[in-house]
Design a protein around this nucleic acid. Structure first.
Lengths: 238, 238, 238, 238
DNA sequence: GATGAATGAGACTTCATTCAT
DNA sequence: TATGAATGAAGTCTCATTCAT
């Protein structure tokens, strides 16, 4: 062995290729899987292709994830459900008004999740839930329920503090969720229903801001902000 | 075979029952295919199941449709693109104001298409377009382009008649289309993102009416109707 | 079309190749499967090989049997469990003495089952039961229980008629079964434990006859038949 | 590495713990392999499971055994064929009568091998020999031939000393072997063919003793021992 | 020596499509 | 025209074996 090797490489460097990969594999596979699931859907994504995109062989994928369904669940956990604890903590720590909290939450959601590739999972579940009941149940339990719960807590906080008028929670939750879901679908449907050029006319941040305003107008006992007066627009009926 | 049979019955009589069935076959197959495509998606729908639901054998399906993709195209033609001529004719024959025309068109669309099973195809294309490029191209050409064209003509009529302010057509078309797409997705996504109870809170006809009002408010040079004054709400930014 | 064809072939001949095959397929597949299961065991038998030996393609096998496990169950039903009704009927119809009945039953069993390829299934289950619990349960229910029941009824008949001394049924059933199982294992184990030359020294019919004699000696209140006095030769013939 | 370490500890001291483990490895692996092979068979036993049960990694297994087949061979050598030299030595040293020798040999065989887990290998080979020809040849050469040879020598001794009547050796060897094989199969087939309760009715030691008696009755020129007169009970105890 | 990550051949099963009848 | 038996490519998952560290 040439001396240079003994000198130039520290132990960590020596182990780099082999050991570091081990730690990196799951992440690489999850990233590749997210890409492909969002691009093609769950059923149409081939395990081998995920592996290839992550730069490993078919067998390696199953070394880390017991099945394609488990891979999908891991993708959901990594990108979505794993974040609820952080969000719930954010809820507990927030000290401003509830309208501000809602505005802040949706803005943050868009920045962290909605605008990311991970939001394609919402659209995906819409189509594949029927064909993969176990995944549907998992998603319901790990994503939908916590999301509803979080929104419910926000609304309840507003009601408790006298900022919002009492509201049927199921209705209220859905009102908040609807524009988020719509936006996600839109972002991941360029190909099918509308040209990119057209879709890009919608500025998500503006759309969300407008929706929040609308929602608050429906919820608040008083106009929340003088800067954007409450209006009687069509959508509150959502 | 006794001679009498050959004499007493004309060919059409002999084959009457058979031919009536024969003529009915494609229709039965298309109906079964629509059901299953909407329920499970294109890829997950099995040719044999379509045939079984139509009461024929697998071979018969391929007698009438060269492939599963051709079957899908026929479903689209039968339920969607085949209707554009009628709609275009309706456009030519309409004599009222353009705001009324738009209102009428969207109401009619909902009654005839949007509220029917066929609207599930829109959602389906959203998910599967990526995986079936030929179907995507077909759908783009047979559905999306004619739809855009029709909407464009309506808007242009309004502009030409001085009812609407001049408008960027791409933007305008999309503004009209967005609530229709949203509604279709909502109708076919009960399972995945929201309970039926919640979704059912949205009355499609009311939602559409409100959206039309909103859209017109954005388009018209003057408030179209005293009954519903123009507003500056969130959605026009769509 | 030459006239000869219209004359020389009846309809049944015309359909021969296609339709007759359809009826024959399951049988051909079951025969091929029995061969291979007995030869190699359940796990080591490949579905494609069964199909190939039956002269069809992989897919055809799954047209008739939903899975390899179902194929195995069908083999068991076809060759073993399906015969219990016949045997039970034979029991009901038999009018001689119970010792004669037992002698007859075991002789018949050897002629019909024990000496056939199907007896390899008994040996197979011995090894694979541990690895395929569902098959083990099926076999227990479809083969072992009915077999025990039939033997139990024979013994009970002897006891009821005063021919046999009262006996612990579990013990008695096993006494009858043991030589049958041993014989089956021996017949299908040429390769592993003993040369063919040696195994062939055991004449199954003689062995069985001696075993029956021994069993009856233990069961009967009196020596059963003067024609064949009880001897201690049973085992030396091994 | 500090110099002190290299000086203060001899190599054997440095590696003591390591080497003791190292020496133990093959034994632990062989024990784990025997367990699993007997429990599940050769093909169904996974290399990784053997390693895990032995408390080492998969790679280590292949460090000691070039392949799963070699592992199996080592298990056979360790547990079966390795003992023939001892048995042959016992044969040479034995000074009593040949009937006593045979009785002693089979009793000892049961105590040392037949009643141990290792006897499961006999049953295993019965099922898998067909699928692993190389293992079958190995087993034939390492186990079956020496066993036959040993039995043959015992019988020949009896003939040479005038204790046994002249006998066809192939037949005689098999007569001795048969009950041993039967017993091994029975011990390892609880699950498939008979309840434990029933199987447990057979006391192996008694069964073997009776069989020896029966065999000797067939072999000896005279009744071998007044202490245990030949009886016809051998089999009823089944 | 020891590890365990990585591989890839191979097994079961599905399903669109063909074609003889 | 109608049938449904037959096909085989393709997809998921397993596991003995290798090899860099």
């Amino acid at each position: 062995m040439p001396l240079s090797k003994l000198i130039c490489k520290t132990k960590s460097e020596v182990h780099a290729k082999h050991e570091r990969r081990k730690d990196a594999r799951p992440g690489e596979l999850l990233a590749a899987a997210l890409d492909l699931f969002v691009e093609k859907g769950f059923a149409a994504t081939k395990a081998e292709e995920v592996a290839r995109r992550a730069g490993v062989s078919k067998g390696t994928l199953f070394l880390y994830f017991a099945s394609k369904e488990e891979l999908f669940k891991a993708v959901v956990r990594e990108n979505i459900s794993g974040r609820f604890s952080e969000w719930n903590a954010g809820f507990d720590a927030f000290e401003g008004s509830t309208p501000d909290m809602l505005r802040h939450a949706m803005t943050l959601w868009w920045a962290r999740l909605g605008s990311s590739k991970a939001s394609g999972i919402t659209k995906l579940m819409l189509s594949e839930a029927e064909n993969f009941p176990e995944l549907a149940a998992f998603y319901q339990h790990e994503v939908i329920q916590p999301a509803h719960e979080l929104i419910r807590r926000i609304l309840q906080r507003g009601v408790d503090r006298g900022e919002f008028a009492p509201v049927d929670m199921k209705y209220g939750v859905y009102t908040v969720l609807a524009p988020m879901i719509f936006l996600q679908i839109l972002m991941h449907s360029k190909a099918a229903c509308c040209d990119n050029t057209e879709a890009s006319q919608l500025v998500p941040e503006d759309y969300l801001a407008a929706q929040v305003q609308t929602i608050l107008a429906g919820l608040c006992v008083r106009p929340p902000l003088p800067s954007s007066p409450p209006t009687d627009e069509g959508l509150p009926s959502l």
